[in-house]
Design a protein around this nucleic acid. Sequence first.
DNA 1: AATGAATGAGTCTTCATTCAT
DNA 2: AATGAATGAAGACTCATTCAT
Lengths: 207, 207, 207, 207
Amino acid sequence: MSQKHASRRSTSISRIAEIRRQDLIEAAINCIAKVGYGDVTVQTICHAAGVSRGLIGHYFKGKDELLLEAVRQVTTELGNATKLAAQDAGDNPTAKLHALIDASFSPPGFTAEKVAVWTALASNAHWSPELALLYKELWRDYRYAVAHLVERAAQESTREVNPERVALTFSTLIEGLWIGWLADPESVTREAAKEACRDYLDAVLRS
Amino acid sequence: MSQKHASRRSTSISRIAEIRRQDLIEAAINCIAKVGYGDVTVQTICHAAGVSRGLIGHYFKGKDELLLEAVRQVTTELGNATKLAAQDAGDNPTAKLHALIDASFSPPGFTAEKVAVWTALASNAHWSPELALLYKELWRDYRYAVAHLVERAAQESTREVNPERVALTFSTLIEGLWIGWLADPESVTREAAKEACRDYLDAVLRS
Amino acid sequence: MSQKHASRRSTSISRIAEIRRQDLIEAAINCIAKVGYGDVTVQTICHAAGVSRGLIGHYFKGKDELLLEAVRQVTTELGNATKLAAQDAGDNPTAKLHALIDASFSPPGFTAEKVAVWTALASNAHWSPELALLYKELWRDYRYAVAHLVERAAQESTREVNPERVALTFSTLIEGLWIGWLADPESVTREAAKEACRDYLDAVLRS
Amino acid sequence: MSQKHASRRSTSISRIAEIRRQDLIEAAINCIAKVGYGDVTVQTICHAAGVSRGLIGHYFKGKDELLLEAVRQVTTELGNATKLAAQDAGDNPTAKLHALIDASFSPPGFTAEKVAVWTALASNAHWSPELALLYKELWRDYRYAVAHLVERAAQESTREVNPERVALTFSTLIEGLWIGWLADPESVTREAAKEACRDYLDAVLRS
DNA sequence: AATGAATGAGTCTTCATTCAT
DNA sequence: AATGAATGAAGACTCATTCAT
């Protein structure tokens, strides 16, 4: 009984802690999207999270760690949404690739917040070892999977393709469209982005 | 004689002013590339330019104006390099497009400094009206020209292409490769970037 | 019990905030008196208050707001001292006017700090909308009350007086004596100031 | 001949110098009136004078000296205007005193610029030895003269007056009205100021 | 666990002054 | 004589972090 109590209390405590962490992370994500990665402040985040300024120190080493965590979470969610979309697309590799395109420019993977955070990740990786590492690993895995799909899809085609290069182009195009959409949403609408990706894929894979 | 003297003196004075402005702009560009757009400080820039901190106020309204000017200069130089490359490529539209690709990933258009500044421009446009305006105008003009080239190039092909969409994809791919190269130079080498662009162009334009 | 605790804590917290605000305001007042309104710095004030420079931002929007608050407090205290003196003087309007004179050149209404701050108020109102507004309202109310007293006092006299004009002269004379005392204390002693005011009042009100 | 030339040249040079000094002094006066004593900058003054920033060093030790010179000039002009008015008023001491009142609130003695500068003088004397000295001497002489006039005027009256005290009150009232007019021109019009002074004088001197 | 008071380093900006031309 | 380029000190303000409660 007392054990149960203790464990229950500890669970509830850590649960609260986890909730607070999550609150702060989400607040950080929203703030990045709202004011830009470079203009996010601890005060901004804590205000958005509805907690006091000092609380950040209880759950994170500092502002940088919180921001890194926020980026990590966004990228994880993006990855999950992508994987899920691919899984739901059945066995056909071409269909899977098209599902990736769809998922890349549709919620929940594609949202203003996620794109803003991703843009922050991509554009700051060069000066931040942590972000750089995260960035490289994410694309490496993604490109590996895409290359595999392209390879399979290309077998149906008579054309000769370089799967790695196509994967690089494909992923870069998606990232470019994200960043372009953020900077100038009028020129890069979601539909236009999808069509651009589809066009590319069709051109590369058609016989 | 005295007129000549006066004019000579006034010229040399304004020349000094122009030189200092240029020094500061170049220092700003180098600083952006060195420490990142968000971490550039007045001190950093002035130290890089070899002048005192207060001098920035003599030639610019403030830090923001200097940074904007730096971005403007880089984009102008990039645009010039691009136009020059296209001009030198002769009349063939396809050749011109390939020249654009080459120029986009070769000095002097393509340098670490320029890519860093462009990345700053693209990733901050969403939160800065000035940068947003600059960004939109640059790509609008670029895409207009590329679309025209694509249209002409496509006439030789039997395929049906949407010049505007191709121009969007083309420009986005280049920008994505720039940003990707900055974030992870190992994955996106210059050659790989060029080949990715060429691949795309060939795939789209081939009959 | 827990409510009492909570309320006590919240009280003590807000009390600290109020104390700090008051500390800073008083330090500001002392600094104005010590170095002059134009030479007061944030550093000066915070040093005088025994706190760090950054603290000013916690309790005030900035230096200007703190200075305005300091002026406001001094004028309020001056007004209170004046009203209290008038109240204590009984019903006789002439006695009340003489009480005003006494209070105007005796502590706690009349101190070096208060006079310095008032001088700052009067001499800067022309270029500061906030100070101008404060200044006008203070004198308007004061003159209104004095005019009323003069009117009543004049009924005992056979002379004809213009209460508003007397009130203006009276208040201006007091202010002039304050400023004159600050600039040259040897020429305008407290006693001389009082006698000057009494002289004026007697001359105007005597039959 | 050559001597004449040299002397003429030196004269014309020093005349230019004198003109420049005067330009700067007048510009300083205008700036004090325009932006306030505390907000005057070297740049402001030199711009108003139509000369370059560095020129101030050629004619004055620094900003402080120029400002002091500006104050000195204004007070001199004020004194001259006052003396002239008294002289023009004939021999009657009462008439002279009324002439002083008139001159105190009429151009050229009374202008916005002069009042602004005088207010700066009075309100800063406490923290500036130079201004304090100037201030004291000016009023000392003025009060001495006024006391003399009051003494003579009082001989016509049956009342007993303290000339020094009246002179103090008189001068303080004028100063107070100047400062009050600057701070709140609506409450202290020129006419009201004159009438206040006349009222006081009449009340004190009437039998 | 949570607050917010407090700090102090860091940033931009202003400005009087100096000096080479 | 005059300019304006250049400096560097000093100012106000922001902000991440620490810590007592």
